[in-house]
Structures are given as structure tokens and as C-alpha cells.
Design a protein around this nucleic acid. Structure first.
Length: 493
RNA sequence: GGCGCUAUCGUCUAGGGGACUAGGAUAGAUGGUUCUCAGCCAUCAGACCGGGGUUCGAAUCCCCGUAGCGCCA
């Protein structure tokens, strides 16, 4: 099977702007992009927006933005141009019409005058009998006189492809040779009565005109492929190579669709996932290396990717593993890089100023260093580390009850306050010594000292090391927070 | 209803006749490290859809079922 591409490989991703770019579409785009980059070929973006009712300019923009965010930049397409444009099908209607006329003149297509309602009825009727589809009026064999009659009634015809007899063989890079009986396909519409092309027709013409060599697309198109192959043959176009990649399914194992909710690329972008996490995770849905490698850098992924190692069975999208992977990538990141990503979220939460001086930056850097192993998605930084930036943080009731509302705590905090105040220098090591000494002097275990103090300083039971976080807060602030906690306890008892 | 695709731990997967007491990742459980959480380390539990063949030998090849999914302006 010829799955290897040459430098002249041309592949495309052809989304419909009828919704957000979803995970499945992104994965298809990714495999095409990887294939092109691996072989030094060309990655083309084509917009299939002939369905005017469902397509929108907003979605068009979202799809482009999502692809860019993922880093799947196209070589030809909207905003980029290219020799084979236009790259939006809505701007290519005259082309489809031309080819439609050609097939009509060659007798390979005919006008069909049946109404949608008639066709619907016919379909239901035939479905029961298990018969292949034929159009109810027998438009296939209409005489010119009958045709004239119908046209006089102003009924607009659709253009239907005359499927020849025989068997179509589809050679698929991943699935081998699949056969379909022509007579079961039935003459299908190529141009609707309003003049817009059907998916199969527009797709074939564009793929040919854009010189696509490898059609890598979702499995759901495999049943469409024999129709397309028939069109290639009728139009005398050379066949490209097909590769139908497995679908991505939702938790309920039905096709992952917009209905599943959190399935759009933009959603994960907003939720604070890193673009490369998405790419890496998506690559692993349906593709793997012999050693099941989990992490790839960009160049490495391009270098290792191959169609041959794409699996055949559908995969369920697992947000839990995606989250894990995002956490891993956050931990791998350099501190400066992480800080840049965190700042927008801290700003949005009103925890830091618009402008950040070097002191502030330094503090964020330290906080990032302390919290990085806990962050799985970027916005978590707000809940995790809010207390570093504001004294007005919430006290978790459970933590207060469990760690602060004890008889020994007020005197302990009072003593801690005094000793910390006297402490100089205020460093992790010296603070640790002081607090351990305090435990000893009070006949308490270190934990009995650390835990209440942690809640006093952060409002929570969980978080970074006590000494580390205290040093970042600074002595003054630590003392202030202890005082405030004492005040709070006095009032509640 | 017809046609098509697919079928290994809950999930993502490795495996392409003997190296399989079926490997890795994730999620789960347990223990260790530690002031908590997270992380890290160690350990455990967990799968070849069913039935027939082919073969000395089948997760791997073939057939039939079954199930899931997809397509049929």
C-alpha cells in the first residue's frame, strides 16, 4: 500500500463552519498536518460552506483561530491564498456548475424533477422492501417531451448522477480494499435544485482541482467514498489515495459531536489547556509508537508520525487523561514561561495589577515555583494561590473547624506571633527552627503547630510547604495574618 | 431497513503465529518520602467479545455470530 508521501504530497483539511472546531475535526486536521510536515508536503485548508443556512462567518473565524492556536498552520487556504483558490466553496459555485453541465452533456448525469417530499416518501417505501434507491418519477429515463412538460410547470430540477453498473473498489490506506455494489448506491444528487453542490460532488471537484494526493479524513466518510470514486471515474480524474481514520467518540461511545458539550477546541483553550497538550493528546488518539511513547516534542512528533501506525478502531475521548497531560506539561515548563501564562488569569481575578514591576514579577515567579506541581489547568492558580496576593482570601470552614478551633490554638498562635516577630533573618531555615522549637517548648508535635499556622496564613489545609509560603508572604504579612486569625477566633468563641 | 467499518485492562494503546505468566500510559488501591496537598518512588488489582476452523502452536490468519459505531441530498 502506498501510504508514503513524496515531497509533492498535498493534503487538506476541509471543515464546515457550522460550529466550533471540535476535537474530532482537530484530530483530522492534525493528522493531515503531521502527514504534510513529515513528508515535506503541502497542508491546505478548504472551507466547505455551501450550506449557507448552517454556516456562519463567526464559526468560520473560530475554526481558523482554533487551528492557529493549535499551531496547525496551513500553507494554502483562506488568509493565505495559493494557486488553487478560492478556498471557500461558497466562492466556487460556478465551478461546480460547470462540471455538472459537463456530466449532463456527456449523459453521465440527468435532471431529476422529484420534490423532496416525493423522494422522502420513496425512500421510506424502498427502505421497507430493502430495494436500492431509484427516484420515483423515473427521471433517469425521461423523454425530452416529458421533461419539457415538467419544466413548463416551473419545477426546478436537481442534477442526479447516473451510477453505472458494476462494483466500486475503494483502496484505503488503513483498511485495505473495500467493495461496494453500484446498484446499492443508487443515482445520487450532485447539484441540488438551488444550484448548490452536494458534499460528494464539491469534494471531488475541489480535491482534484487542488491536486490533493492523499485524502485523510474521518471514518464517517468511508461510505461516501464509492460515490466519489464513481465521480472521479466519470470525470476522468486520477484517483487520490484515501485514508479513513477512526472516529473519536464521546463517553457514551457515540460519535463525539457538538452535542456532547465540552468538545470544542475553544472550550479547552478557555479552560486553560496548553495548545501542545491538545496536540500531543490528540495525536495519541488513534496513533501510537511501538513503545507507546506518551510525550512528544513538535519535531519529534512530525518525525515519528506515519499513517501506517494509525489504528483502525474508534477511540473514546478521555478528559481525565488530557488533564493529567496538561499538568505534566505545566511541570515541564520553565518558570518564566509559566509566569507569562499565569499572569492573565491572576489579572482577571483582580489579584495583581495591570502593570507588573520587577518586585511583583519576582513574587509571581516564586509563587509559580511553589504551585506548579499542583496546577493541572491554568485558571486553577486563582484558587490555589490567591492568598499570596490578597489578605482578603476566604477561610475554608472545614479547615478552620479542624485545625483552628482547638483550645490550644490561640495561645500557640500568640506565641508564634511573638517569636516570628523577633525572627531575623526571616528565612525558610530559621523559620523552621523557630517553629520546631516552639512545638518542643509547648509540648506539641510539629504537626500540631504547622497545621493551625497554615490555615491562619492561607485559609486552607492544603498547599505548598509552610516555611516556603511564609517566606514569600514576608514577615510583616505573616504576623498580620496571625493577628487577624487570633481576632477571628476570639470573636467566634 | 440496506450497506460499510470496528472489536486487547474502566479509558488510550503495544502486539502483526511461538520471545505473552499479554507490555506501557491514565484512572483506581496500598505503602514510602513529607508539616498538609500535590509531586515523586515502590507495590497491587485490572483485558485478548463468543463460537467454529487453519496450524505442532493463535490476541495475532479465515469463517459465522454478537455488539458498538458510522453512512444512506
Amino acid at each position: 500500500m502506498v501510504a508514503s508521501g513524496r515531497a509533492s504530497s498535498r493534503v487538506r483539511f476541509a471543515p464546515s463552519p457550522t460550529g466550533q472546531l471540535h476535537i474530532g475535526g482537530a484530530r483530522t486536521a492534525l493528522f493531515n498536518w503531521l502527514f504534510a510536515r513529515h513528508h515535506g508536503g503541502t497542508f491546505i485548508l478548504r472551507i466547505e460552506d455551501t450550506d449557507v443556512a448552517r454556516s456562519s462567518e463567526d464559526f468560520y473565524q473560530v475554526v481558523l483561530d482554533s487551528l492557529k492556536w493549535l499551531g496547525l498552520h496551513w500553507d494554502e487556504g483562506p488568509e493565505k491564498g495559493g494557486r488553487y483558490g478560492p478556498y471557500r466553496q461558497s466562492e466556487r459555485l460556478d465551478i461546480y456548475e460547470r462540471y455538472g453541465r459537463r456530466l449532463l452533456e456527456e449523459g453521465k448525469a440527468y435532471r431529476c424533477y422529484c420534490s423532496p417530499q416525493e423522494l422522502e416518501d420513496q425512500k421510506r417505501r424502498l427502505q421497507k422492501g430493502g430495494e436500492p434507491f431509484t427516484c420515483p418519477r423515473g427521471c433517469r429515463t425521461l423523454s425530452s417531451e416529458e421533461r419539457k412538460n415538467l419544466e413548463a410547470k416551473e419545477r426546478k430540477p436537481a442534477l442526479r448522477f447516473r451510477v453505472p453498473q458494476g462494483t466500486v473498489w475503494v483502496d484505503d490506506v488503513l483498511r485495505g480494499r473495500v467493495s461496494f455494489e453500484n446498484k446499492l448506491i443508487g443515482d445520487f444528487i450532485i447539484l441540488k435544485s438551488d444550484g448548490t453542490p452536494t458534499y460528494n460532488f464539491a469534494c471531488v471537484i475541489d480535491d482534484h482541482l487542488m491536486k490533493i494526493t492523499h485524502i485523510i479524513r474521518g471514518d464517517e466518510h468511508l461510505p461516501n467514498t464509492p460515490r466519489q470514486v464513481l465521480l472521479y471515474q466519470a470525470l476522468d480524474f486520477p484517483l487520490p489515495l484515501f485514508a479513513h481514520i477512526p472516529l473519536i467518540l464521546g463517553k457514551d461511545s457515540s460519535k463525539l459531536s457538538k452535542r456532547h458539550g465540552a468538545t470544542s477546541v475553544s472550550y479547552y483553550r478557555e479552560q486553560g489547556y496548553l495548545p501542545w497538550t491538545m496536540v500531543n493528546y490528540l495525536a495519541l488518539l488513534g496513533w501510537s509508537t511501538p513503545d507507546s511513547q506518551q510525550f512528544f516534542e513538535k519535531d519529534e512528533l512530525i518525525q515519528k508520525f506515519s499513517l501506517e501506525r494509525v489504528g483502525k478502531s474508534a477511540a473514546i475521548f478521555d478528559p481525565v487523561k488530557l488533564e493529567w497531560m496538561n499538568g505534566e506539561y505545566i511541570r515541564k515548563m520553565g518558570p518564566d514561561e509559566l509566569v507569562d501564562l499565569l499572569i492573565p488569569y491572576l489579572r482577571q481575578a483582580g489579584l495583581i495589577e495591570e502593570s507588573i514591576d520587577s518586585t511583583a514579577h519576582q513574587k509571581i515567579l516564586e509563587v509559580a515555583g511553589l504551585e506548579r506541581e499542583r496546577i493541572k489547568v491554568l485558571p486553577e492558580i486563582v484558587d490555589l494561590a490567591g492568598f499570596f496576593f490578597t489578605s482578603d482570601f476566604p477561610y475554608d470552614p472545614v479547615s478552620v473547624k479542624k485545625r483552628l478551633e482547638k483550645d490550644y490554638v490561640p495561645s500557640l498562635l500568640e506565641e508564634a506571633r511573638l517569636r516570628i516577630q523577633a525572627l531575623s533573618p526571616f528565612e525558610e531555615e530559621s523559620l523552621g527552627q523557630v517553629l520546631r522549637r516552639l512545638a518542643e517548648d509547648s509540648s506539641l508535635s510539629p504537626s500540631e503547630v504547622f497545621h493551625p499556622l497554615r490555615v491562619a496564613l492561607t485559609g486552607k489545609m492544603k498547599g505548598p510547604g509552610l516555611f516556603e509560603l511564609a517566606v514569600v508572604l514576608g514577615k510583616e504579612e505573616v504576623v498580620r495574618r496571625i493577628e487577624r486569625t487570633l481576632e477571628m477566633l476570639k470573636n467566634s468563641f
